[in-house]
Amino acid sequence: MLKVLVVDDQILIRAGLAALIRAAPGLEVVGEAATGEEAVRLAADTRPDVVLMDIRLPGISGITATERILAAGGEQAPKVLILTTFDLDEYVYNALRLGAGGFLLKDTPPERLLAAIHTVATGAVLLAPATTRRLVETFATPPATPPQLPALTARETEVLQMVGRALSNRQIADHLSVSEATVKTHLNRLMAKLGLSSRAQAVVLAYDCGLVKPRPSAAYG
Rank of each mutant, 00 (worst) to 15 (best):
K193W: 02
E90G: 05
I82S: 04
A144V: 15
D107K: 07
V203N: 06
I63W: 05
S179K: 07
V178Y: 07
K213G: 06
L104C: 00
T64G: 03
L98F: 14
A202N: 09
M191G: 14
T66A: 12
R41C: 02
G102D: 07
N169K: 06
S177L: 13
H118F: 13
L167S: 07
G31W: 05
H175G: 02
A121I: 03
A116H: 00
S177R: 15
N188Y: 03
V183Q: 03
P78S: 05
R47Y: 01
K106H: 03
I82Y: 05
R133G: 06
F139Y: 13
A72V: 00
I13N: 06
E156N: 10
F103S: 01
L160R: 10
A154P: 01
M191N: 13
T46P: 00
T84L: 05
L104K: 03
A154M: 08
H186D: 12
F86D: 12
N94E: 15
P150F: 14
A124Y: 02
D49N: 14
A181I: 12
A140M: 06
I69P: 00
A124H: 13
R165H: 08
G59I: 06
E111Q: 14
T66F: 05
R14K: 08
V7R: 01
G210A: 11
L126G: 02
A71L: 12
P109Y: 09
Q148I: 06
L96E: 09
P58T: 11
L2Y: 02
E28D: 13
V163P: 05
A115N: 11
A140T: 13
V29G: 02
A124P: 01
V136R: 03
A77V: 04
K106G: 04
E67D: 04
K3Q: 08
A39I: 05
R56N: 13
K193E: 14
L98D: 04
D87K: 04
D54N: 09
